[in-house]
């Protein structure tokens, strides 16, 4: 049994979140296998983002438990969870708008250095991180914009920047909330390729509405509707499930 547990990076049991009595996520059990790409799909308002907020501890669950690498993190605070190696991106891009593109990425790179409380040092001491910053920016195609103010970037570039910042922490588990929404086709392909390339030695859970991306990238798919798990399996299993089809059509009426 311990063997199976070790293969799952995340184990969620009976997870429930109620807002003013309304259950946005209700009684969800989910296992995510290590080094897999696990997609979470479902109609609008299904509770996907809330699920992310719960396992990253932005919200405290009303009920249920969360394990990460075998440790119970149900009552941990979100920063601590992030330091364990579970890092997320946000559905609405989360950047530091009045800092430069390079500074955005550097904020993430700075943490493992252990100098973040050093208020007496000059920030030029952070220049040792510049090479890594440039590498990350090149990976998402932002190397030309390094010294631009992040808030002034077009939307697709902001998402790319957020992705680079998230990657900078080299997380063991990467949570992506709709990484391709609002992007042009070219950017979508770039991000998809990037997700594939970084999935080699880590686990990814992603919420995604673009089903062709899901089909190409995901090893396993969980379908959520009205806070409950509706189906789980591979793409072909899930896409032929009549309940899933009904939920999608019913959800969009």
């Amino acid at each position: 049994m311990t063997r199976a547990a070790a293969d799952n990076i995340v184990e969620v049991r009976g997870l429930t979140k109620r807002f003013h009595g309304f259950a946005a996520v209700s009684n969800v059990d989910l296992d995510v296998r290590r080094r897999s790409v696990h997609a979470l799909i479902g109609p609008n308002g299904a509770g996907k983002t809330t699920f992310f907020n719960l396992i990253t501890k932005v919200h405290q669950p009303s009920e249920g438990s969360i394990r990460f690498n075998g440790d119970d993190i149900t009552n941990e605070d979100p920063a601590h969870v992030a330091r364990r190696g579970m890092v997320r991106s946000f559905q609405i891009s989360a950047i530091f708008p009045r800092m430069t593109v390079a500074e955005n990425v550097r904020i993430a790179l700075q943490r493992p250095k252990g100098i973040s409380f050093h208020f007496w040092r000059s920030d030029s001491s952070l220049s040792v991180l510049d090479d890594r910053v440039d590498e990350l920016l090149a990976a998402v195609g932002l190397e030309q914009m390094r010294d631009k103010t992040a808030g002034g970037l077009p939307y697709g570039r902001k998402r790319a920047l957020e992705f680079a910042t998230t990657l900078a922490l080299d997380p063991e588990l990467l949570l992506l909330d709709e990484p391709t929404s609002g992007l042009g086709t070219e950017d979508v392909e770039r991000i998809a390729a990037l997700i594939r390339s970084v999935s080699a030695n880590r686990t990814i859970i992603m919420v995604e509405h673009n089903l062709s991306i899901v089909a190409r990238l995901a090893d396993r798919i969980t379908v959520l509707a009205r806070g409950k798990i509706l189906a789980e399996g591979t793409y072909s299993e899930v896409s032929t499930d009549p309940r899933v089809i009904e939920a999608y059509i019913g959800g969009d009426e």
């Binding site: 890092v87 997320r88 800092m99 550097r106 973040s116 920030d123």
Partner: peptide, 18 residues
């Protein structure tokens, strides 16, 4: 730098582990 990031987007700073 971290103070600045907190001011700019505290939720993001937390999600990066601060």
């Amino acid at each position: 730098q971290i103070l600045k990031s907190i001011r700019e987007n505290e939720l993001r700073a937390i999600s990066l582990g601060y």
